[in-house]
Simulated assay, not measured.
Amino acid sequence: MGSSSDPPHFYVYQCLFRDLGVYLPFTQFECDFLNFINTAPCQLHPNSWGFLRAFQVLCSALGIEVSLPVFHHFYQLKMGVPLYGLMSLSGSRDGGLFSLYSQSYKNFKQEYFRVALVDVNPLEDGVFYLGGLLRFPLYWRPAPARFHGVGELQLSASETVAIANLEALPLPLDCKLILSLANSAYKERGLESEYLVLFKC
């Protein structure tokens, strides 16, 4: 799964689309995260993709800007077993935002797509390229970048407020519940009814 032969391509697990609501092209936040940890999409465990998706849905529901430093505050990256172990996210020292989507993801490595760029001008493509530059690592990377919380990332005043508001929620939130609200026009109402909390972010 790490070959860089032509045409440009990457691999992605089927369960990301089926279970987690991931779609192509990846969002800018997802691309920024993959670039930050120097990891191809197939190197990140599905439960960690669930955290990425749920964070975006939660931010949308609460009117919070989707921010890499805010997400990093709640998580750390655990390295897989060399050479081909998957990367996974776990809660930072203060704990994560969400429960695991699945306690036991089975056989997901056997169900995947190969997404290839064929006969498309890189300047016109939105999945692989932006402005002619790759949006994220396509192929398996031997040296992902570990992180523990925010680290050296700088927090703006609004990001500090966002973290405080998220920390005030009844954590961990149910990942499946949050993802179920992804296409709802009333995300905040759904959160309030489930957790009996009036969110004021």
Rank of each mutant, 00 (worst) to 15 (best):
S5N: 10
D6W: 03
D6A: 12
P7R: 12
Y11Q: 11
Y13L: 05
F17V: 09
G21D: 12
G21Q: 13
V22T: 12
P25Y: 08
P25A: 14
F26H: 08
C31Y: 04
F36D: 14
I37K: 10
T39N: 07
A40K: 01
A40Q: 05
Q43P: 07
N47W: 02
W49D: 01
F51W: 01
F51A: 09
F55G: 01
Q56V: 12
C59A: 10
I64D: 01
V66A: 02
V66E: 07
L68P: 06
F71I: 04
F71E: 05
H73L: 00
Q76F: 00
L77V: 08
K78D: 09
M79E: 09
M79G: 00
V81I: 13
P82M: 03
Y84S: 04
Y84D: 11
S88Q: 09
S92V: 08
R93I: 05
E111S: 04
F113G: 08
R114Q: 15
V115M: 02
L117G: 00
V120F: 00
L123T: 05
E124Y: 04
V127C: 15
Y129R: 07
L130G: 06
G132L: 09
R135C: 05
F136H: 05
P137F: 14
P137Q: 13
R141M: 14
A143P: 00
P144M: 11
A145N: 09
F147P: 11
F147V: 10
F147M: 05
G149P: 06
V150G: 03
S158M: 07
E159R: 07
L166K: 10
L173S: 04
K176Y: 02
L177M: 11
A185T: 14
A185M: 08
A185H: 12
K200T: 11
